[in-house]
């Protein structure tokens, strides 16, 4: 695979995403194109990841899981960033759209994150000989997931939709703020214990496939969030329209 391929794919994917967001009339078909494109890219990723890229120096063939594992965690972080953006937008100006976006991005983010952590655990077993190791990235990602599992649980345990939107926006911001602090403190703590962390340098072909994987999953991240958002919006409608204006206006009974 030429080294410019992931970048070219990224340009196409981002272009389609922008098209979907900017032009309302394209929303019926852009997601289908993205799904098709993503599926093709996934097939290519299987080939490039399993057969084309050379085995990784330290981890041999087991290391190939990073083409999926690492992009998944990236997509998860991207989704949570969308979530906090939607939460901030909601607090500045109340809107059911941003609330629906917050809900859908958190849910899709938890899916990608949980799958990513699971794959990390599968990777850890042959690499380090244990299912779970105190690797700082694994810990930080798991803590991040817990934050958003709590967030989703809170959403489902709160009845009043308006209060839920405001409260969960606050919870989303508090949670997102904690992510970099957790990351730094875990890194710090880890260096204190003189622990090895995973691979540092990467061969060029490996990096190219890695980015290719990230772009493939970006299409799915987008399509998942869009579809989940549409579900959330559909649940909201009906409950949101104003009641009809039946009663005569402006009469004061004395």
């Amino acid at each position: 695979m030429p080294s410019w391929a992931p970048l070219a794919a990224l340009v196409v994917v981002v272009g389609l995403i922008v098209l979907h967001l900017a032009v309302r009339s394209t929303r019926t078909w852009v997601w289908k194109v993205l799904t098709g494109l993503g599926s093709l890219m996934l097939v290519a990723l299987v080939y490039f990841g399993l057969f084309w890229a050379p085995p990784e120096a330290f981890m041999s063939d087991v290391g190939r899981i990073i083409y999926v594992h690492v992009p998944f965690v990236w997509m998860c972080m991207l989704a949570f960033t969308v979530n906090v953006g939607a939460a901030l937008a909601y607090l500045f100006k109340k809107s059911w759209r941003t609330d629906a976006l917050a809900e859908s991005s958190a849910e899709v983010g938890v899916f990608f994150g949980a799958t990513g952590v699971l794959m990390g655990s599968i990777w850890a077993r042959p690499t380090w000989g244990v299912w779970w190791d105190w690797d700082p990235r694994l810990i930080s990602t798991t803590v991040m997931l817990l934050v958003y599992v709590g967030y989703l649980a809170f959403r489902s345990f709160t009845e009043d939709p308006e209060r839920r939107a405001a409260w969960s926006a606050a919870a989303a911001i508090l949670g997102y703020v904690s992510l970099p602090i957790t990351w730094f403190s875990v890194q710090w703590w880890n260096s204190l214990h003189q622990r090895q962390s995973g691979s540092g340098t990467m061969d060029k072909p490996i990096r190219v496939v890695y980015f290719w994987g990230a772009v493939s999953f970006l299409t799915f991240l987008f399509v998942f969030i869009v579809k989940r958002y549409e579900i959330a919006r559909a649940r909201q409608t009906g409950a949101l329209e104003l009641p009809p204006l039946e009663a005569p206006k402006g009469q004061v009974t004395t």
Binding site: D160, G238, A239, L242, P244, E246, K249, V252
Partner: peptide, 19 residues
């Protein structure tokens, strides 16, 4: 001025105006 108040999917107050 033409207020409505919703709780969940129920309208507690609908299109009310009064001075």
């Amino acid at each position: 001025d033409d207020i409505s108040k919703r709780f969940g999917s129920r309208w507690a107050v609908s299109r009310l105006s009064f001075t």
